[in-house]
């Protein structure tokens, strides 16, 4: 009984979230509406790169990419420091 109620509430929430799709601007409609306008018009002028995605990832927002590389490094350190559980030895 409770399980059915939970399922109904979850489905209601999912449908109400999906209704918000009607409020989005159209797909690919970036004129005067977002920061993407500046990026698409000026990426080649400012960074001399043919790949706008690459220019955004590595030039306009390079700090986020540095953060992501650090997350990758942290994951490697985490695996490295925890793998000894399986190998059964605890050393440096």
């Amino acid at each position: 009984m409770v399980k059915n109620l939970v399922v109904v509430v979850c489905m209601g929430l999912i449908f109400s979230f999906m209704l918000s799709v009607f409020f989005f601007p159209g797909f690919g409609d970036w004129e005067n509406k977002s920061v993407a306008d500046y990026y698409l018009r000026n990426a080649f002028k400012e960074t001399n790169s043919a790949n706008v995605v690459g220019a955004i990832v590595w030039d306009f927002r390079s700090f986020d990419t540095l953060g992501e590389e650090t997350v990758l490094f942290t994951a490697a350190i985490g695996v490295f420091s925890l793998i000894m559980f399986g190998l059964g030895k605890e050393g440096e």
Binding site: T47, N48, S49, N51, G54, A55, W58, D59, S62
Partner: peptide, 10 residues
């Protein structure tokens, strides 16, 4: 060698 920052960072 056109967009140096992106090349080096890549």
């Amino acid at each position: 060698w056109s967009a140096q920052q992106i090349l080096l960072l890549n």
